[in-house]
Nucleic acid binder design. Structure first.
Lengths: 221, 221
DNA sequence: TTTATTTTTTAGATTTGCCTAAAAATAAAT
DNA sequence: ATTTATTTTTAGGCAAATCTAAAAAATAAA
């Protein structure tokens, strides 16, 4: 029943899943962009995924994951995020280094391995970037969170995740001692560039661009 | 300088390495057999490995790993055996289950990952089957060992490794409480089938076939 | 509502790794 | 030393996943 997917197929499924978080239905160019490949390749692969029942594909219209496709995506994401926890918590990688290694580890297909890893790590609910880890049934804990850019002034909050996975952003944040669990509040919003001024306990305040404020997700206290 | 090898190339290199342990120079059919593929495929791939400078290949004569090929093989074997230690010591896999999972994990290419894993595991020198783990420079500890079939009568010895990787053999041994570190001596050799009778401390003795006795390596005390 | 632009798909090639069947080289047997 | 058998290589093809260039469809603009 669980079809054995190639690495390429897994990557397509995973990308479609991620794009669906923001767009509901995904189009060819966006996926080509995300996978750093060409639109023609997308069309080819989508026909295959369609025939395997993993996506609903309307030529020229767009596509979304089927129920099975969604299930498959959650398995891959579970693997990825559990490996990230392992790399950071056990092997002492820093959080900005783990993504590309986890990209490879996520394709090792052994349910037993992942379930044992999960137990070994103490069934973590969130990965080092604060993203939720699907359990072995594909259930994901949701957590009330909003982008830092939308946090009301002077409201205490905790950073719960960072959306953008680029090494540049993550090491900038690390250099500023900004990480998952950091407490902060917004002191000012500057309308001309939408940048914001944030303040940590016992630390001087810091100005952050709109883009960065959008990538940081917080949980108001 | 360190060429990026495909999974297929890595598997060829690794198989040639293993076959070279017993035969010095390897021939096409033996490798085809070992890799469960066809001789024609071997010829194809060997031309490629030759052109990458990883093997010395004499058409119709046989082939062996070059210095670079040997280096590459040791890296792959290091990965494989470290993952086996992780699976058994940390994730509590039994030693007969780990081989096929490690076959996949060994192809994750990140030097940093492996060196950190090595440190995390406490720089183990041997894997759960007793095989030596190359260090990050490719050095392997050697250990005086001989097949159980060649151990003299009534000489105490410790099991140091088990050569045959088949699940059947490994679970048979496990069921008889025979594992790395087990002490034993040979009580009788039966000439008509070359089976041997072995004796453990405080346990009744056991008869073992020639094939099994060949797969078990021991270190005489 | 035509025309222009953008998006998507088709057509045809390429690379990697494998295959079968046939030919060539080597080794073994008479 | 021939013939026979075995081993290895070549020749030609196939499937997966990619690509470029061109055609077709959908969308936006004039």
């Amino acid at each position: 029943m669980a079809p054995n997917l190639s690495v390429a197929e897994e990557n397509y499924i995973k990308s479609i899943y991620h794009l669906q978080q923001s767009y509901e239905s995904v189009n060819t160019n966006a996926l080509a962009d995300h996978l750093k490949t060409r639109p023609a390749s997308i069309t080819d692969m989508l026909k295959k995924l369609q025939s395997k029942g993993l996506v609903q594909y309307n030529p020229y219209k767009g596509f979304k994951l089927s129920r099975d496709g969604n299930k498959a995506a959650l398995i891959i994401i579970r693997r990825h995020r559990l490996w990230e926890v392992f790399l950071v918590d056990q092997l002492r990688f820093s959080w900005e280094e783990v993504h590309e290694v986890a990209e490879e580890l996520e394709h090792v297909r052994s349910k037993k391995l992942i379930d044992k890893l999960d137990a070994f790590l103490g069934h973590p609910k969130f990965d080092p970037h604060g993203d939720p880890i699907p359990d072995s049934n594909g259930k994901i804990s949701v957590r009330q969170q909003l982008p830092l850019s939308e946090l009301p002034l002077n409201k205490q909050a905790v950073i719960t995740s960072v959306q953008n996975q680029s090494t540049e952003l993550l090491s900038f944040l690390t250099s500023q001692h900004i990480m998952i669990g950091t407490r902060l509040e917004v002191k000012r919003k500057l309308p001309f560039d939408n940048s914001i001024e944030i303040k940590f306990k016992n630390r001087q305040s810091l100005n952050i661009s709109e883009q960065v404020a959008n990538a940081i997700q917080v949980n108001p206290l």
